[in-house]
Amino acid sequence: MTAVLEVKDLQIGFGGVKAVDGLSFSVHEKEIIAVIGPNGAGKTSAFNCITGFYKPTAGSVTLKGQNITGKRPADIAAAGVTRTFQNLRLFPDLTVLDNVRAGMHLYGGQSWFDAILHTPRFRRSENRYSDEAHHWLDFVGYRGPRGVPIRNLSYGQQKQVEIARALARKADLLLLDEPAAGLNFSEKQVLLSLCRRIRELGTAIVLIEHDMGLVMELSERIVVMNFGREIADGTPAEVKANPAVIEAYLGKDDEEVPSHGDA
């Protein structure tokens, strides 16, 4: 089975600080992989390198055998990667439907010439944009209004729309940056089943997440990062038992010398 995504020895630094320092992992078809680690471990920086928002200083990113290292974000999206952002990045003044249509930009189907003349081709393509936008909103279980500007919606609804927008891209790989942050228990259950349904569409998922319960239940493999370095890569059970991971999360016992200190 060929890998959908293959990250090899990825590195990026900001003025001397190595945010990501030698990250390697691969994602196979229909896999769900979690990237975990303490805050500041370099998870989001790694996502930004994979999607082209940062230019990695070393290493390579390969998507289905195609080298996409250091390309522009739009080209990487066209190659088949789609993502959500840690702090929602929607288009606040545009309607819910238009936000989802953004994910369909690459479908094409009309030129500016069609648009000016309102050719049948234009109408067909516009209908398709609307139909599919509705479809993806249904798919993520969105129940709010659809014709209103997105800034009027609740946080949970906005998160749903952002996933719908990413899905509308119909990419091979979906990167979710903290999809469960700010969600309550039942919303997290909905997210869980949504991720499984996305997998059934044939899309591999990599997610950054802090909710360990969700991560353990959902992912086939877990990549653990700390201080930009990858300290573990394995099944949930393996990672749970890995001493390096435990150390990263709980600290090393003998490091805290003054026991009466600021524990």
């Binding site: 739009a74 080209d75 999206a77 288009f91 545009l94 238009d98 953004a102 930009h105 500016w112 000016i116």
Partner: peptide, 28 residues
């Protein structure tokens, strides 16, 4: 009419958030 087409939407996406537009494959 241009404003209400795929290109017109892309213009608005760029106006609202360039990074998000790029992430959706729009060559800003």
């Amino acid at each position: 009419r241009l404003g209400k087409s795929r290109l017109g939407r892309a213009w608005r996406f760029v106006r609202e958030d360039e990074d998000a537009a790029e992430a959706m494959g729009i060559h800003t």
